[in-house]
Design a protein around this nucleic acid. Sequence first.
DNA 1: ACATTGACTAATT
DNA 2: TAATTAGCCAATG
Length: 111
Amino acid sequence: MDDDYVEAVLDLVEAIPSGRAMTYGTIAEVVADQLEAAGHRRRGGPRQVGQVLAHAGSGVPWWRVVNASGAPPARHLSRALEHLVAESTPLSADGSRVRLRQAIWFPDELE
DNA sequence: ACATTGACTAATT
DNA sequence: TAATTAGCCAATG
């Protein structure tokens, strides 16, 4: 995993607005498109995004990245939920996952 | 090289 | 809805 990939992921995560969220899979697609357009060979997937955040995600709003069912990473669940609540991110009734229908964000949406 | 492991996903039951 | 099961792709031993 080279620096270009790591940087692309971190930049994108930083761009997610407060109160919104993106899934690992979507981030992987956007980053793959970006790098491909920049001349690199297509690579990466949801798990690679997870790898990047696990090792280098401490400085970015990692709690705005959730899995395909809207759940934050199991290991940091409570810390993530604190942030999400503080940002009034739309949550499911039991407060354990993000309501993707409302909270999902995509980078070309007007801000 | 080979096997195992993960901040994952989509399909199936 | 929730649990299970293949796939997936790069890192690690």
